[in-house]
Amino acid sequence: MSARQPMVEVRGARKSFGAVEVLRGIDLSVERGQIVAIIGPSGSGKSTLLRSINHLETLNGGEVWLDGVQVNQNLHGQAFERHINKVRQQMGMVFQHFNLFPHLTVLENITMGPVILKGMPKTDAKALAHSLLSKVGLAEKIDAYPSRLSGGQKQRVAIARALAMQPKVMLFDEATSALDPELVDEVNTVMKQLAAEHMTMLIVTHEMRFAGEVADRVLFMDGGVVVEEGPPAEIFRTPQKERTRTFLKKYLSA
């Protein structure tokens, strides 16, 4: 629990889908309160890396650590199940397609985790949901069903749902990729707000401008390896590697 220890650490991560090697030895370290953006072309492995941190993908090699606890521990059966459920409670994850529970109201979507997993009294959970919804600007939608919300609203509720577990780190997997352009800002605003509150964040994104604004560090991935990493100013203005330059040229000219 020392302050020097990274919040998230990945060592030598390897992952293959069949014959395709998607991650080919990734090292990554995220300090407490740090915001790391991961960019790269489709198929570069950035989403797989993020999903591996949450153990939605099982690595073929390497280690993932969260705040001094190994995520992909060598446990089996029920023992691993108990371990991973505990670890996941400490990581919030936000998906490209929101994945709100359509049969539950916004309130129930948010309170379900704290009530069932942490035994939080329902009144407390409701107060928590209310304050989180106010934070993301959706307090009036507390009793709505997800089908009544726009994409941007859904994603903000999904962020509130993840925050309700009071996670140590938030993982964003292309959180704005499925949104209409005019709805992207409302989600980005919420993420910037979290950044200002020093939430530790890993953000997989295709939005270079947003990555530049919010991230402390940018990782450029291609072909399952980290090609280059550094502060956004360096990566975006003076990239060292040819691969990075080619990629950015395509994006920034678009």
């Binding site: 949450n54 939605l56 199940e81 459920n85 505990k86 996941r88 409670q89 990581m91 919030g92 994850m93 998906f95 397609h97 994945n99 709100l100 529970f101 359509p102 049969h103 379900m112 985790g113 069932i116 997993l117 999904a158 749902r161 993840a162 577990m165």
Partner: peptide, 24 residues
């Protein structure tokens, strides 16, 4: 994605089935 969302919150396989998948 429903299962993944529930699992990342920390629900067990059984809780996910009972609270998220089966009602739908």
């Amino acid at each position: 994605g429903q299962t993944e969302a529930a699992r990342t919150i920390g629900f067990s396989r059984f809780q996910t089935l009972r609270k998220v998948v089966l009602p739908q």
